[in-house]
């Protein structure tokens, strides 16, 4: 990755991060923590790796994305808006009655959303089905499956992982957002997942753990994951819930933030101003 390419992806990440904060503050509440932890992933996917046509969202030659941790929809919507799938203005309709941007992604409503998710665990199987279908069609496109670490509590994930590994569906890139916290607290206190990478290895995946907030490292890890030919493939992203805004990184309720708390509004406003300054500086 050239320094210019890296700057572009950092700029895109800043825009996605800003958009998340703007739309959640406007909506009054929302899943901030798990949206922020996948900002760099979204930047790398939409800024560099994915094949897509925003004017033809169902283009057969596109790569597919399944955000199984559907509550992080705002991160996806920001990436889609910044990639031209729809106007940024639409982001401000998040969760309003009649919106095309519901809290959890809906393939029947939002351009660029390939699968409806929200009931945790289910996206793992639908992504497996998409990978099966792509292989059956002889397509060389991939499906990027983004799974939460708390989501791994769901048994269905492990059914799907068995299936993906058994059929060596390496066209399904499994990406686990290991942001360490779920709604009720740290993973270890809610339901301990133990060593996620080891578990995936035991299930038959080629696994790599990488700093999920480091754009270059993440991109390089995806290069290696996609080069795997003899087994299923998985990248565990070592991330921070609420990443990018120190206040939210340590805020206990960062899974779903309520913006009636003045401290949350102040932190969001300050971060938005800072990100806007960075974005303007980069684009100047």
């Amino acid at each position: 990755m050239t320094p210019e390419e890296l700057s572009e992806l950092k700029l895109l990440a800043a825009k996605i991060r800003r958009d998340i904060l703007v739309m959640l503050e406007k909506a009054g509440s929302g899943h901030l923590g798990g949206s922020m932890s996948i900002v760099e992933l979204m930047s790398v996917l939409y800024g560099r790796r994915l094949s897509y046509d925003p004017k033809n969202p169902r283009w057969e030659g596109r790569d597919r994305v399944v955000l199984s941790k559907g509550h992080a929809g705002p991160a996806w919507y920001s990436a889609l808006a910044e990639s031209g799938f729809f106007d940024r203005e639409m982001l401000l309709t998040l969760n309003q009655g009649g919106t095309n941007l519901p809290s959890h992604p809906d393939r029947t409503k939002t351009p660029g959303v390939d699968m409806t998710t929200g009931s945790l665990g289910q996206g793992t199987s639908t992504a497996a089905g998409i990978a099966t279908a792509l292989r059956m069609k002889g397509s060389d496109r991939r499906v990027y499956l983004i799974v939460g670490d708390g989501e791994l509590n769901e048994g269905q994930c492990w059914e799907a992982f068995q299936y993906i590994a058994h059929y060596k569906l390496n066209n399904c890139v499994v990406i686990i957002d290991w942001n360490k916290r779920q709604l009720d607290g740290p993973l270890e206190e809610v339901i301990n997942p133990f060593d996620i990478a080891e578990k995936m290895r035991a299930f038959g995946f080629a696994v790599e753990t990488v700093d999920g907030q480091d754009i270059e490292a993440l991109d390089a890890a995806l290069d290696r994951a996609e080069a795997v030919t003899d087994s299923a493939t998985c990248v565990v992203l070592d991330t921070v819930k609420g990443a990018g805004v120190p206040f939210f990184e340590t805020y206990p309720g960062n899974h779903s933030v309520k913006f009636f708390d003045p401290a949350c509004r102040e932190a969001a406003d300050a971060a938005i101003a800072e990100l806007n300054a960075y974005i303007e500086g980069s684009e100047a």
């Binding site: 399944v66 699968m115 665990g121 289910q122 793992t124 199987s125 639908t126 992504a127 497996a128 089905g129 998409i130 990978a131 099966t132 279908a133 059956m136 048994g155 269905q156 059914e159 799907a160 068995q162 299936y163």
Partner: peptide, 10 residues
């Protein structure tokens, strides 16, 4: 459960 999800994805 996975079978139904795979069917949906297909």
């Amino acid at each position: 459960a996975n079978m139904i999800g795979v069917a949906a994805g297909m």
